[in-house]
Write a protein that binds this DNA or RNA. Sequence first.
DNA 1: GCCGTTTTCGGCCCGACTGTTTTCAGTCG
Length: 571
Amino acid sequence: MTNREIARVFEHIAEILSIQAENPFKVRAYTRAAQTIADLSYPLSSLPSQAEIEKLPGIGKAIAQKSWELIQTGKLGYYEKLLSTPHARLTEFLRIPGLGPKHAKLIYDHLGIDSVDALRAAAERGELESLPGMGKKTQAKILQGIEQALKYKQRSSLAEMHPRAQAILEQLSGLDPVEQISLAGSLRRMRDTVADVDILVASDQADPVMDAFVSLPEVADVLARGPTKSSILTRDGFQVDLRVVARESFGAAMHYFTGSKNHNIRIRALGQEAGLKINEYGVFRGKRRIGGQTEEEIFGLLGLAFIPPELREDHGEIEAAQAGELPALVELADIRGDLHVHSRWTDGRNSIEEMALAARKRGLRYIAICDHSSALKMARGLDRARLQEQMREIDELNRKIKSFAVLKGIEVDILADGRLDLEDEVLAELDVVVAAVHSRFDLSRAEMTARLVKAIENPQVNILAHPTGRIISKREPYPLDLDAVMDACLACNTFLEVNSFPERLDLCDIHCRQARDRGVDLAISTDSHRIDHYDWLKFGIATARRGWIEKRHVINALDLKALRRKLRKAR
DNA sequence: GCCGTTTTCGGCCCGACTGTTTTCAGTCG
C-alpha cells in the first residue's frame, strides 16, 4: 500500500470516530498520524518492522500496529469494523461546508439519512429545521453548502491563487485605516496547492476595513462578517478570510494565521511549558502581555530563532530552531542562471535572443537553451541537424551579447527503455544536457526506475527534468523508486531539477528534502516557454525552501565558471 | 491515541462567528 492509501485509511477512521463523538484527542491522533504518513519521503512499507513505524512522530503502539497490519495484509480489521457502521457513510457529509460531525450524526439519528442526495431532498422538504438545535438558517446553510461542495474546487494551484490574492491585497492596502497588511495561511507558506486565501490587516479601525472587504467587486457571497474576522466567497469560487487586529498584535496574528495548524499547536504547547499563553493577540504571562508585535518576538520569547514561513509544518523546524540548526534557505537573489529554457525553435514563444535579454534584465548571468528533441513531435522537437544549426545561432549570439552567457543545451527525451532520443556524440557537443520523460507513463515501478537510472548513468546527462512527472491535481507522479534514482544521481554526478512550472513544481517540497538528506544537488529551473515565465522562478524557489534547500545545494546558484566545473562528468 | 529534563496518568492550542439559545454548541481555522 502507498503512503497516500494508508493515510487515507487513517483520515477516514478519524472522520468516522468524530461522528461517533469519540474523544477528540483520539480523533486528532489519527489525523496527525495520517498527515505524518502522507508527508513521508519514503514508502512506509519500506520500514522493516512495526517498531520502526512506532518511532515516527505522533505514531504510537496502536497506530503502528494498525499500519503494520495494513502493510502486511492490505486490510485492517479495526477499519473494516468501522466501515460496517452506518457512520462510515456519513463522512461524505463532512465535505459539505458548515456541516460537521455533530449535525451529521444528529441528522442520521433522527431521520435515518445517510446520503447527500437524501440530505438535499430532506432539506428541500424542510425536514431539518425541526431537529433539536437546528433551525431554518442552518437548514438553508446546509443546502447552500451542498451546492457549493458540488462546484467547489478542492484546492487550487499556488500560481493560480497567488495573483488573485495579490489583487485583493492591493485593493485593501490602499485603504486609509490599513496600517499593515500581509498574506498569511498556506499562501504565505507557499504550499503547492492552497484551499483559500488568508489576509491579515493591522488597524485600529476594523469596521471600515471589513466593510470595504465584503463589498469588493470579487465578492459573490459573504460567509461571515464580524468585528475582527470576515469571510467571503469570490465569484470564481474560492474563499477569502480577512482578519483585522491592532498593530501591537500583528506579529502574533501573523504567526497564528500563517500556521500550519500543527506548527501552531506545537508552538503554543512550547509556550505552555514555559508558563506562557500564546494566542493571536500576543504572548501572555498570566494577564500580562509580554510580546506579539512581531513574529520574531514570539519565537524569541520561546528561545527560538525566526522560523521562515515555508518551514512551518511541524516537520522538525521547531527542534532545529531549538538547536540553532535552522537551514539558511536559498533565496531568489541567490540564483545566477536558468538551466532549462525553451525558444521558438520548438514550442517556445520567444527567440533565443529575447529569452537571453529578458533573463539578463532580471539579473541572471546565464541561461541554457534546452529545447525539445525530435521524439516530441508536437513540439517540433530538434533532430541532430536542427540542433547543430541552433548551436551556431547561439555561438553568434554569445559573440554579440555582453556580460551574459547562453549555454547550449537540450531537453532530450528519455525513451521507454532508458535510451536517449539523440546520439551521445551529438550530446557531447552541448554544455548542458537535461533529460526528461514525456511519454509512456504507464510503465511499472521497476521499469520506470530502471528507465530513469539508465538515463542518469549516461555520461552525457547532467540534469533530470521534472523527475516524477506529476501534474498538480491532474496527473499523479509515475510509480518510481526515488531513492534508487537519487542514489544513481549521487554516483554519477547527475542533478535533479526543481521545475518551477506552476502545474509541476517537481521535485515537490518533500522530495527536495529527500534529495537534501541524500546529498543530491538540485537545479531550480523555470522551463520557461516565453519571457514572462521567468516570473515562476519564485515558485520553484519556494518549493525548494519548503524542502529545506540551501544555496549550497543549488547548482544554478553557482557562477558560470563554478557551474561548468560542477557539470563536468566522466564523459 | 499519544506523550513525558516536573508526569507512565492526565493532560492534550486557542479563539471567532453563527445560530439557536437564555448561557452555549457547533463549526472553522
